[in-house]
Computed example of a mutant assay.
Amino acid sequence: MTTLSPLLPQKLLILAPHTDDGEIGAGGFISSLPEETEKLYIAFSSCEESLPEGLPADTLEKECLEATKVLDIPANSVSFLHYPVRHFSDHRQSILENLISIRKSYNPDVVLTPASTDIHQDHSTVTQEAKRAFKDRTILGYELPWNCFEMKPNFFMPLDTDLIKKKLLAIQAYKSQRFRGYGDGILLKRFAELRGGQIGESYAEAFEVIRFVWR
């Protein structure tokens, strides 16, 4: 494998409490990385309880595989853990053990997880346990705007037109979620314009550097 710059991940771990969280918060960043970067995407819940009535229980898993394919993540690098949505805090120890197992087997150097100020109970649980499991790795907190009462972004990723297009295509792969305010991608494109404007770019994603380890 080609040796990457020490500032680029060799192995990226994307922690998505629910299918689509990783794409919403970091789809551009994920897609920007060179093909030499290994990527592993873990969805802790497929949110079967949140599907519109009448859809098959595996709808979001299938849509997630389509979305992550857009971001150049192979299907065999996407896993679903099936925790009950909105009840992650009841399974905190099991989630921590999952993360420790992933650390040992996959050994990522950069971990993406929701920002530490994200108020959603499932997102908060995943990030708290990620901080315990990966305290010796770089951890970047991605932004889900409607869940962050306070966000102090200190790392910005500029997105060119190709990257913002791939991010939006990934989000639009979740056809079952089109009824949500962000489902068509328009809101997220506007938010990317806002973050881009903060750094003099057309589009950007913003992250919280929870921990930075440069080896």
Rank of each mutant, 00 (worst) to 15 (best):
G54D: 00
P74Y: 06
L168Q: 11
M151G: 01
A133I: 06
L163C: 07
D21T: 01
S50L: 11
L33Y: 10
P74S: 01
R180W: 11
F149H: 00
S89Q: 13
F88R: 13
K104I: 00
I119E: 11
A192C: 10
V70D: 02
W146T: 02
S77I: 10
R215G: 13
P153W: 15
S46W: 01
K39A: 07
E150K: 07
E35T: 00
N154G: 09
L7E: 11
I119K: 09
D162V: 12
P6C: 04
L187T: 08
L33D: 14
H120G: 06
T117V: 11
A26F: 07
V78S: 07
W214R: 11
E35L: 04
G25F: 00
L13A: 01
D160V: 13
F212C: 13
K152Y: 11
Q172M: 06
S45R: 01
E97T: 05
D162S: 12
P34S: 01
K69E: 03
T3D: 04
D122C: 08
E208M: 08
A192L: 14
G183M: 02
L96Q: 07
D162T: 13
L51K: 01
M157V: 14
H91R: 02
D21E: 04
Q121Y: 08
A192G: 04
K11Y: 05
T127V: 05
K152A: 14
K104V: 00
D72Y: 15
L7M: 03
T19L: 09
Q121R: 08
T113C: 11
S50I: 04
I199W: 03
W146S: 02
R178L: 06
P56L: 01
R195D: 02
C47K: 07
